[in-house]
Amino acid sequence: MKVKDIIKILDAKLITGEENLELDIVSGCGADLMSDVMAYVKESVILLTGLTNTQVIRTAEMMDIQVICFVRGKCPNEDVINLAKERGITILTTKETLFISCGKLYSAGIVGRGVWNE
């Protein structure tokens, strides 16, 4: 599923990273604690979270995650957006909750499996 399809499914808004709209996303991860995100390495991942600080972008950077969607209508501050831009990370925001967002993407075929463990 492409990033632009995810935008439609979650009725999301693109904050930065237009260059990744055609990127293929296979798996997803939803969490507000970053070490839970880092417990499972996946490929072609979207990270859904309600946390909007710099460390979300850092976590994505360490894990080679290229797309982040902030839930519950959250939008990060300018510094966070700029760091994402610098790192080529796409940011979306949706009004849906974390649970509903994950549910919608899972129903549409996004999986939660890790590639290294499980």
Binding site: L33, T49, L51, V56, T59
Partner: peptide, 17 residues
């Protein structure tokens, strides 16, 4: 700390893994 996104108690286990 938890509000900053840390404190799951997974850091050291992740390092080990």
């Amino acid at each position: 700390i938890r509000e900053q996104g840390f404190g799951a108690g997974m850091g050291l286990p992740n390092m080990k893994r």
